[in-house]
Amino acid sequence: MNQGYGHFRAGSYTGGVTAGIIIALAGIVLTAALGCATGTAAPLPAGAGTGAVAAQPKGELTVFAAASLSGAFEEMADAFEGAYPEVSVVINFDGSQRLRTQLEHGARAGVFASADWEQMDAVAAAGLVAGQPVNFARNQPVFLVNSAFAAKLEQQKAAGSAPAQAVAAERPAAGALTLADLARPGVKIVLALPEAPVGRYSQAVIDRMGESPLFGPDYRNRLMDNVVSRETNVRSVAQKVALGEADAGMTYHTDALPPYVAQRVRALTIPDSLNVTAHYPIATLREAAAPEPARAFIDFVRSAQGQAILEQYGFQPPLSPATGAP
């Protein structure tokens, strides 16, 4: 019944058993020669021969990350493993609310990266977070519209066969598809479950649109009548629109960017005055098997290199590292 994006990465230990033994032997010889027995039998990190080295994080790190981070955090993990060859990263992608439930019921992880503060606060309230969560990225909801559907609707509009809308949001190019068209009868819209961060953001935006004179009084109800399904995470919403089974759906701006989706959908931006911002917090977890890799991973995400990866996937930098939603 797993609808999530379980994504497992094999460890990146380069050496085999032989290499391990050689390193271990070299370590023993070195420690003996230097006369500074540390009391641990663990092999020293590569390059220990040069003398003073800070303790390199090592081991396996499990990261629980929001489904919307899928592409970005896969690349993040690769880059992190490049910088810390002794650490292997395993990522579990799913709706943040599901990750939260899993954590609350005893799932063990080192890092939790959520798409909203509600889930992070709940995990913190359960006493599972070590230290303070910090913002590391921002994102915005958009409406995805299937390209084929958009083209067909625009043809209808151009031919004048469709009844003219009483209220149109903005009128850009004549006949172009707008957000107002999504409330036409028969448009099939998918949203995420209201418990999922993106589902909550979607609802907030739709409520605001309903109150705005730009869209008219019954816009919200007509739009909600068009909802045909509630998906468990944002990637399922994007997938149904890309497949053309649904005509439109609400996701994050970043979900429109992967090539498979980008070729099949059109993103309709929501006017800034009506949109909301998704703030993504990240934190180390108390249950972390190895705290050093978890801390190193968060530092990496917030470093220039980590932020560059996020930017490449369409995320914006955090406004402030402040805890709590700004």
């Binding site: 439930t101 909802v227 399904s229």
Partner: peptide, 27 residues
């Protein structure tokens, strides 16, 4: 599995008991 893929998940329309259980599990 086949239901949520093919029929989606909407209360009163396509949300059967197993899907309702899954949705309830979120909260």
């Amino acid at each position: 599995g086949a239901t949520i893929m093919f029929a989606g998940n909407l209360t009163g329309k396509t949300q059967t008991m197993p899907l309702a259980i899954m949705s309830a599990l979120e909260t």
